[in-house]
Write a protein that binds this DNA or RNA. Structure first.
Length: 644
RNA sequence: GCCGAAAUAGCUCAGUUGGCCAGAGCAGCUGAUUUGUAAUCAGCGGGUCGGGGGUUCGAAUCCCUCUUUCGGCUCCA
């Protein structure tokens, strides 16, 4: 007998070789029907795999993330079986579960799959699923596995097997499809009752762009049709928040083929929004001891040779432009740091001056591959809310924490709660890739880790993700449909101060090298505004709304009063306009609601007579009548609360 | 850059298998109406069907090519 400890810490005795499924059955038939896999001592196992010794066991159902993963992983196999049946001779790469669903990378040879084929694949999957096929786990020797896939002529599987150790190789067989797989899988296909093939895309084999591009088929599955329908509805709703759609509807920005792809044009309302954000951050930075500078949009190539960027990124940048007479070469500014280094060196510094914090909303241009451009989140010309802090080595940690305060302050003011922090350190196995001494790297890396700890912030640590010149801390958020984007960044740099030979006089009257911290709390105005739009679905917080109020006169007779109100509100720095179109009030309200203007002010005979306003809040409705002063004060209070 | 898909009026879209002068709603313009919390009515203008080339008696529709956009991959100082 073996002892099984369940999550409630109760201990039950079972014969050796008991399975998760049998344990579930011993508790209740209902549980047994719902169990998808079993977590055995922190490893997810097939529910049908025998447990041979004492263990902690958690039975996993659809309500557990690992339960869902198991369903999706098994669904990937099911889809592969369907594809093999429909497209005989297909070769298979890998087919994992992902955050929402699963995919399988396949090589169809000369054939291809398009949207029109999805239905047939779905139907085949459901047909196979209804057979309640079992997933059978088989341990196999390396030689046996190689022989099996050689016979099957599956070169991708053979490559994968060659990287595996003998004795750790398992196959899973379900119906007519056998796959090289670590598992775990469902007991059988009876759980898979609703499937959807979502999209196809190209994907390089093993993520290497020099290797063959396979066809990646994405799908998702659910135990019930109702859950699939709900998921698809949710996806549709999320698409309505897409910043590209809202940016067009709300007239925030546009693109022009003639200007060039990846080069956003900010429309008046978008520019107003962006300017608000810039003003807000400038004020925060002023209080934190930053000084603003302005530098040109181009720089001599020598500048980037000094910084090292030319050697590293020159080929992948917009190519230098030349002066017609002298033949001098200039590059479009791809980053602001070299310019700021030159500002630092424009006068001598004492240790008493440091830290020097140089800030600029600097517009930079980077050549992004055409297929990478994406709305406002990935563009070729963008403005960084950049600043470079030049400080003494002993000030790094404190400065780093100061920057984190600014980032967190901004996220709080904009109600960003779902961000994650990522610490990027150097790859310890490939130190050659990085510039700078071991000692400096270790100092900088520990400064970041300690600062994050001191702030009580949760952060993931990624080895090998550091920039070539230093480690960094990035803040990531998700867009409407779940894609991750990097916003704010804080990077320590020991490299540029060397290359630009930056120095300060210490209290020993010797020359010392400052440390540089690059930081951009928003990241770029473009990407930040994009994420902000999706975050609030276009309903900006009052202090940022391009128009805070629209005044709606009931008829032509009250347009003068409406204009007077607008003027009075303007004295309170409240932005708005009068809708004096020859339309009914209902129409004006509808249009203001669709424009997502936070407040509507309706004025007619009654309001003009008693010098008052009828207030309507966007998305809420009629708030009743208020005096102009009371309304203005209410707005000002609401704004103050948000930006403090 | 790579794989796949798409591009019709300012916007959202219809336009079967090639065949009247390419349509609708919204927006716009003109007029009527003077309006009270999510769409007043009528009339009018607007398209080289993304650009170029080809097949055909005939192309928005089929083929080639370029551009842009979308979904991924790769990349991201």
């Amino acid at each position: 007998m073996i002892q099984i400890t369940l999550p409630d810490n109760s201990i039950r005795e079972y014969p050796e070789g008991i399975t998760g499924l049998e344990i579930a059955r011993s508790i209740s038939e209902g549980l047994a029907r719902n169990v998808l896999a079993a977590k055995v001592d922190d490893q997810v196992w097939d529910a049908t795999r025998p447990i041979m010794k004492n263990a902690h066991v958690k039975l996993l159902t659809w309500n557990d993330a690992e339960g869902k993963s198991t369903v999706w992983h098994s669904s990937a196999h099911l889809m592969a079986e369907a594809i093999e049946a429909l497209y005989p001779g297909t070769k298979f790469g890998i087919g994992p579960d992902i955050e929402n669903g699963f995919y399988y990378d396949i090589d169809l040879g000369e054939r291809s799959i398009s949207d029109a084929d999805f239905k047939a694949i779905e139907d085949k999957m459901l047909e196979l699923a209804r057979k309640d096929q079992k997933y059978l786990r088989k341990e196999i020797s390396k030689a046996g596995a190689l022989e099996f896939f050689t016979t099957k002529n599956d070169e991708y599987k053979l490559e994968l097997i060659n990287d595996l150790q003998d004795g750790e190789i398992t196959l899973y067989e379900s119906g007519a499809f056998t796959d090289l797989c670590r598992g775990p899988h469902l007991p059988d296909t009876s759980v898979i009752r609703a499937v959807k093939v979502l999209s196809v895309a190209g994907a390089y084999w093993r993520g290497d762009e020099k290797r063959k591009q396979l066809t990646r088929v994405y799908g998702i599955s659910f135990p019930k049709q109702k859950e699939l329908t709900e998921y698809l509805t949710l996806l549709e709703e999320a698409k309505k928040r897409d910043h590209r759609k809202l940016g067009k509807e709300l007239e925030l920005f546009t693109f022009s083929q003639r200007v060039g792809s990846g080069l956003p044009l900010w429309l008046p309302k978008g520019a107003a929004l962006r300017e608000r954000l810039e003003r807000f951050l400038k004020e925060v930075q002023r209080k934190a001891g930053y000084v603003q500078v302005i530098t040109p949009h181009i720089g001599n190539v020598e500048l980037y040779k000094t910084s090292g960027h030319f050697q590293k990124y020159g080929k992948d940048s917009f190519q230098p432009i030349k002066t017609p007479v002298e033949g001098e070469e200039f590059m479009l500014k791809p980053m602001n740091c070299p310019h700021h280094c030159e500002i630092y060196t424009s006068k001598p510094h004492s240790y008493k001056d440091l830290p020097v914090r140089i800030a600029e909303f600097g517009t930079v241009y980077r050549y992004e591959q055409s297929g990478e451009l994406h709305g406002l989140t990935r563009v070729r010309g963008f403005t960084q809310d950049d600043a470079h802090i030049f400080c003494r080595p002993d000030q790094v940690k404190e400065e780093f924490m100061g920057v984190m305060d600014i980032v967190l302050h901004i996220f709080r003011a904009l109600d960003f709660k779902d961000f994650t922090a990522q610490i990027s350190l150097r790859d310890p196995n490939d130190k050659e890739k990085y510039i700078g001494s071991d000692e400096n790297w270790e100092k900088a890396e520990s400064a970041i880790v300690e600062a994050v700890e001191a702030k009580g912030m949760k952060a993931t640590i990624e080895m090998g993700e550091a920039a070539f010149y230093g480690p960094k801390l990035d803040f990531m958020v998700r867009d409407a449909i779940g894609r991750k984007w990097q916003l704010g960044t804080i990077q320590v740099d020991y490299n540029l101060p060397e290359r630009f030979e930056l120095e300060y006089a210490g209290n020993d009257n010797q020359k010392h090298r400052p440390v540089m911290i690059h930081r951009a709390p928003f990241g770029s105005m473009e990407r930040f505004v994009a994420v902000l739009i999706e975050h609030c679905a276009g309903k900006f917080p009052l202090w940022l709304a391009p128009e805070q109020v629209v005044i709606l006169p009931i008829s032509e007779k009250y347009v003068n009063y409406a204009k007077k109100v607008l003027h009075l509100l303007d004295n309170y720095e409240i932005r708005g306009r009068v809708d004096d179109r020859n339309e009914k009030t209902g129409k004006k309200i509808r249009d203001a609601e669709l424009d997502k203007v936070p407040y509507m002010v309706i004025v007619g005979e009654k309001e003009e007579n008693e010098n008052s306003l009828s207030i309507r809040k966007q998305g809420v409705g009629d708030l009743g009548t208020q005096s102009i002063e009371a309304f203005a004060t209410m707005m000002k209070d609401e704004i103050k609360k948000m930006t403090e």
